Computed example of a mutant assay.
Amino acid sequence: MNALGPRETSQGRHESPEERADRRWNDLLQEVRVIQTGVQILFGFLLTVVFTPRFATLGQTDQTIYVVTVLLGAATTGALIGTVTFHRLVTGHRLKPETVLWASRLSMVGIVLLLATVASALLLILRIAMDDSAVPWIVSGLVGWFILCWFALPTWVLRRSSARE
C-alpha cells in the first residue's frame, strides 16, 4: 500500500471499467440528490403561487414570466429524475458505462435548466418586489455569478489541470 491508498497511484485509480462506472454512478447519484432537493423546494413553491390572491393582480407580463418559470421548473425536474429512470430502464443489460455517460448528460441539462428556472424566478420576484428598471441588470449579474460558480470555475480548474499533465 502506498501513501495514496491500496489501489491508487499518482496516475489515478486502478479500477476496471465496471468499477469505474459504479463509482461514477454513485458520485452522480449523490450530486443529483443534492440538486434535486433544491429543485423540489423551488418547484413546489412555484406551484402554489398561482393559488394566492396576489397572482390575479399580476400583469400579463408577470403572469407569462410565471408560466415560463413553472415550465422550466418542470423541465428541470424531468431531466434530473430522468437520470434515475434511465438507470432503472437499462439496469441488467450490462450498459453501466453508457448509463453513467447519458445520466451525466441529463444531469447537466438539468443544471442548465435550473439556471434558467432560477433566473426566471428571480426576474419575476424582483419585478414584483422592486418595480425597478435595475431588475434585469440585477438578474443578469446573478446569472453571471451562477455561470462563474457552476461552469467557468470548474472549467478553468479542469483546463489548468490538463495543461500541467
Rank of each mutant, 00 (worst) to 15 (best):
A134D: 11
S161P: 01
E8L: 14
V68T: 08
E19V: 09
E8T: 12
M130P: 03
R88T: 09
R159Q: 12
R127Q: 13
T9H: 05
R105P: 03
V112T: 13
C149A: 15
T64V: 13
S10N: 07
E8R: 15
L153I: 15
V90N: 01
R20W: 01
A56Y: 00
D22K: 10
T99M: 04
L4Q: 02
P154E: 09
I147D: 06
D62T: 04
L113Q: 11
Q30D: 14
L28D: 05
L113Y: 08
T77N: 10
W137L: 13
H93S: 12
D22F: 11
V135D: 00
V84S: 10
A129L: 09
L4V: 01
Q36Y: 07
T9E: 12
S104W: 02
C149F: 15
P97N: 15
D22T: 11
V50M: 07
V139P: 07
W156A: 14
L42E: 01
A152Y: 12
R20A: 09
I128T: 08
D132V: 01
W150P: 00
Q11M: 13
E165C: 08
S161Y: 06
T37V: 12
E18Q: 07
V34H: 01
R54P: 00
F86R: 01
F151M: 14
W150Q: 05
S120L: 09
R94G: 06
V157C: 07
H14Y: 00
I111R: 15
V70Q: 06
R33Q: 15
W102E: 04
R24A: 14
R88P: 04
V109M: 10
R54V: 03
A21E: 10
R105Y: 12
Q60P: 05
L42N: 02
A75S: 13
T57N: 12
L158T: 10
H93R: 11
R160L: 11
L46V: 00
S162N: 15
E31S: 13
E165Y: 15
V34M: 09
S16T: 14
T64H: 11
A119E: 00
P17N: 14
L42H: 04
V157H: 14
I138E: 02
Q63K: 14
A75M: 08
A116G: 10
G141I: 04
D27W: 12
A129G: 06
L124C: 04
A163Q: 10
A152F: 12
L113E: 09
V39D: 00
L126M: 06
T83Q: 02
A56S: 13
G38M: 07
T9P: 08
Q40D: 12
I35S: 13
I35K: 00
V143E: 10
L148S: 05
T99I: 03
F51C: 03
L123P: 00
I35L: 13
R127T: 11
F45C: 07
S104C: 04
N26H: 11
G92S: 02
T69F: 08
T155A: 12
R13I: 14
V67I: 14
V32P: 04
I35V: 15
